[in-house]
Design a binder for these strands. Sequence first.
DNA 1: TAAGCCATAACTGTATACATAAATCAAACA
DNA 2: TGTTTGATTTATGTATACAGTTATGGCTTA
Lengths: 226, 226
Amino acid sequence: MTQSSRAESVYVSLRRAIIEQALRPGMKLPEDAIGEQFGVSRTSVRNALVRLSAEGLVEVRNNRGACVAEPTLEEALDIFSLRRCLEREVVNRLSRKITPAQFAALEAHVRLEKDAVGGNGPLSIRLAGEFHILLAELTGSKPLTRYVSEIVSRCSLILALYSRPHSDQCGVDEHIEIIQALRQHDPSRAMHAMEHHLEALETRAQISNQAEPDVRSILSKYVRTG
Amino acid sequence: MTQSSRAESVYVSLRRAIIEQALRPGMKLPEDAIGEQFGVSRTSVRNALVRLSAEGLVEVRNNRGACVAEPTLEEALDIFSLRRCLEREVVNRLSRKITPAQFAALEAHVRLEKDAVGGNGPLSIRLAGEFHILLAELTGSKPLTRYVSEIVSRCSLILALYSRPHSDQCGVDEHIEIIQALRQHDPSRAMHAMEHHLEALETRAQISNQAEPDVRSILSKYVRTG
DNA sequence: TAAGCCATAACTGTATACATAAATCAAACA
DNA sequence: TGTTTGATTTATGTATACAGTTATGGCTTA
């Protein structure tokens, strides 16, 4: 199968841990500790961290090691905006040339999502994201897939940071709605459905400063004015 | 200044060499040789190659080292398409909030481009690309800037592969036209100007199979049918 | 007791060393 | 002469070692 090098498997594992919000934004990622866990040397870990850094999932500061990225609220909104742009392109392309086999794949995925609803959180989070990645893959465009994949991952990260827990009901129904729109082969309707879904997602998430919005603003309420 | 680590400086140098088409698509990138040239160890070179690979500028195959990426014609057209999508977003955002200082920056850059016209090729190529990257930077969006930067770089690579030499007259005039459109603060006109520029670029480049269009298609004309 | 400072510890950046896979070349064979 | 196979060489993947930087903790001192 995937003759996965050690660096590769560390990369995959770390990525998944971040997306499933096991590794939360801001967490330090010491090379030693990670290497020890996976039974590999720092060399492979570093390789993985470099890649994750290129994707924006981790941040590396000079001589200070890597952390899970902590996008600011401003960056978060920006990323969502870019996501709308990219996913509009995805459904625009798809609605023109989607095949029955591809519909089957989408429906199979949605079924997985339905089964996971109410179950464990991490799985739901991951599946919801993977629906969008699957859509991108079906366009057949590798660059587009890569960008969507990155952006979706970063959105998971953002939800971990700025949304109230489990506020994302994942919107399986909206996924189905998108599939319906694609079935009409109507680009504008498909784009509209996607846009609606992403806006709803953003609304449900109630993206706002709440999780550790910087020590200063927390403590500002505790400053005695007398 | 930029307390550039060795890995970083190797990355920057390699990237530039690829974009300026000194390192042409398909060229092998042996870690030893590169490390020797830059006076660093393979460790730093590998680090740089991993990053370039994440950007799609180089390809690394398992146990076979890295090469400058060779997008297929299909991928090339796809990348251009994605580029139109991203740069439409750039000017759309920019036209709403561009400032006088930003205009000054754009005009200064165009002046550089004009000076370089007719001079050395690599510089022109690079400046033309950097105009688009500058536009993206002015949006203030780091993710968007990164994507545009990547895509533009890959387009340089594509032009190296599929366009007839120097067919890209760089279109400085079209850059000026884009600036004019932005000055009107009219998103749709700006997007139109950008779209026009990119289409013109693509047309001028005459993107088509010509540089080593695959042994098979060459030899197909030599197969005796009798 | 609080602030500043130095020594120590922990970690990163890089080089080197070693193991393994791929490529190369030569010799043997048909 | 052309092909195949085995040895040699080359280059990659990974681990380890070392140097330099940042963080930590205790000590001194006011």
